[in-house]
Write a protein that binds this DNA or RNA. Structure first.
Lengths: 248, 248
DNA sequence: ATCATAGTCGTCTGCCTGACGATAAACAGA
DNA sequence: TCTGTTTATCGTCAGGCAGACGACTATGAT
């Protein structure tokens, strides 16, 4: 074998696909776009696109994200605040038959975003929408109803990553607006995990973990009931001990 | 933008790189090979190679692993036993300048293997060896002594993955021979984490976690001292509650 | 025989979590 | 205005688990 001989290796197309998750109306939702061309024309798919020749993988993911949603992703390395969503690499999918036309290797990325206004259909998609992940993954069993390509698998992997990562990191705050209440954060956990948590124990846990939350001043009654204190995400990124996910 | 138009996307080379870890003489070691050609000729690098045109990414990783070490990787999905090492995808590295000659996207994989006889130098490598990771990562600061390309970064990511994954999974057994003692398993944790663990509390923890270890029958005095019971890995893959890594 | 080495079983204490009672502060409607 | 509903927040208590460490066991080496 002759490594690095340009004529000896087969050419690949490299794309990024995005699993963009948010919490809307107490449900975990993913951004999907409708495909405008073959194959899988008219079917829903994860947003994504080709990596450019001089572009890093994370830069390509951030660019696609901006094109589809207008969100400005902030790299975990750079904690620049603003309305930036969390972006991280998820996994890479390269089955030779995953695209019927040619050999495509897709580097999937995971984005966690606060609830947004309606997504804007940009780029090459006919339309875009937030779909509850239950709906998307349930439909993946039926032949013609599920997501295009291997996107159901990618979505499932992304959801599983998000579910496990909020256990031991403060990443759940990425689903929240800049200032939020303990109750709003709890509803994020409940939506992502699909369980009910005890409000009192949750409150004790998050307020008792140093660096997780810092008071933002002021209160809100967005949710009705007694006014709740506003917080913003503290500097801590790791939760130790972790938040325990209740048994099924 | 015209997606999936073959003339519109730049061609990439796709490779797999391997972070192969083992525990030798109470130290965490990685497999490195000496580069036989430019660039970085004569420097140490992670083993790896090009993905073939009809080959899945994990298949390419398993093939490279067999070529370099003779190890038969078993996919996490398929728990076929034997002398198979654990193999999982780690992350993908695609900086446009990571290879000075052309655009190469590398899908790194992580392999956890029991201690092996001397590695066989196969394929395109002049030679191969097990190197303590402390040594490899310490040298990465100096200009000409560290690993080739961005392999120091990839190795660091792989080591970090291994360190965190043995906390909440039974993956540490992948570093052990088919039958092993509690003390041998403890020395794996100590080598990977670089800490000392209390033998009594460790024994209580691993024998008290259902499904982690099953008695293999018989005892051994490999390590001197009182004979120790032999175990093999139980069916459980997740450790709940996790093994706690002591503070630094 | 004595020592060194490793393995295994127990005990105790402190921390954290789950379960749940109680109170506080808002709003809606009678 | 009073009452019920909703949500937030503080407290209490028991059980589980981990860290610290004592005690005993079973081998090989000197």
């Amino acid at each position: 074998m002759s490594p690095y001989d340009p004529s000896a290796y087969p050419p690949f197309a490299v794309t990024v696909d995005l699993v963009v998750l948010t919490v809307r109306r107490h449900a975990l939702c993913a951004l999907v776009v409708r495909r405008g061309e073959q194959p899988f024309q008219g079917r829903w798919a994860l947003p994504g696109g080709f990596v450019r020749g001089d572009e890093d993988l994370s830069a390509a993911a951030a660019r696609e994200l901006a094109e589809e949603t207008g969100l400005c992703a902030h790299d975990p390395a750079d904690p620049g605040a603003g309305n930036g969503a969390h972006l991280e690499q998820l996994a890479t999918y390269g089955d030779p038959k995953r695209d019927p036309r040619m050999r495509v290797v897709s580097v999937a990325h995971l984005v966690l975003a606060p609830d947004l206004p309606a997504p804007r259909a940009g780029g090459d998609a006919n339309s875009a929408r937030w779909a509850p992940i239950d709906e998307l993954l349930a439909a993946s069993d039926e032949a013609a109803a599920g997501l295009a390509f291997d996107h159901a698998r990618i979505l499932a992997d992304g959801v599983e990553r998000a579910r496990s990562k909020i256990e031991y990191s403060s990443l759940a705050t990425a689903f929240c607006p800049p200032a939020f209440t303990v109750g709003e954060l709890r509803r994020v956990y409940e939506a992502v995990w699909g369980v009910a948590l005890d409000p009192r124990n949750f409150h004790r846990k998050v307020t008792g973990t140093p660096g997780f939350l810092v008071p933002a001043g002021g209160t809100t009654t967005r949710q009705g009931g007694r006014p709740a204190q506003l917080f913003r995400a503290g500097g801590a990124t790791l939760l130790n001990p972790p938040m325990l996910r209740p048994e099924v």
